[in-house]
C-alpha cells in the first residue's frame, strides 16, 4: 500500500468537507488520512457476511407524529445565535447561482 495520499486526493476530500488546508499542512494530511484509509481498507478482507443491510435503529419501526403544530421560536431567538443578520433574516455573503 502507498504510505500517503497525493496532494490532489487530500484537496479533493478537503473540498468535499469544505475545510481549507494550508500548504504546510498538506504533507501531514497526506500521511494521516492514508493511515486511516489503510485501516478501513481492511473491510475488503471481511467475507462470509449476509448481504442484508440494516440502518441504525435495527429492530425499530418509525412511529409517525400526528400533524399538530407545536411551539415555535421567536424570530429574535433565531437571529440571536446567528453571527450575521439583518432584520429578521439570517445573512450570508451573496450566493450566486441557483435561485430557490
Amino acid at each position: 500500500m502507498e504510505d500517503k495520499l497525493t496532494k490532489e486526493e487530500v484537496l479533493h476530500v478537503a473540498q468535499l468537507a469544505r475545510i481549507n488546508i494550508d500548504e504546510d499542512e498538506l504533507e501531514t494530511y497526506q500521511i494521516e488520512l492514508k493511515k486511516l484509509l489503510n485501516e478501513v481498507e481492511k473491510i475488503s478482507a471481511v467475507k462470509g457476511y449476509d448481504d442484508e443491510k440494516l440502518i441504525a435503529s435495527w429492530d425499530r419501526k418509525t412511529e409517525l407524529r400526528e400533524d399538530i403544530a407545536g411551539e415555535m421560536l421567536d424570530p429574535k431567538e433565531v437571529i440571536n445565535n446567528a453571527p450575521r443578520h439583518s432584520g429578521n433574516y439570517i445573512e450570508v455573503p451573496v450566493v450566486i447561482g441557483d435561485e430557490s
Binding site: V10, I43, L54
Partner: peptide, 28 residues
Amino acid sequence: KRRIMVGSYLLSGENAKIYYNKALSIRD
C-alpha cells in the same frame, strides 16, 4: 477535521457502497 475528511471520502461516489453499506451489512 481528519475524521470529517475521511468520512466524506468514505461516502463519496461509489465508495458508500464499498465501505458504508458493506459495514452496515456486517454490523447486522
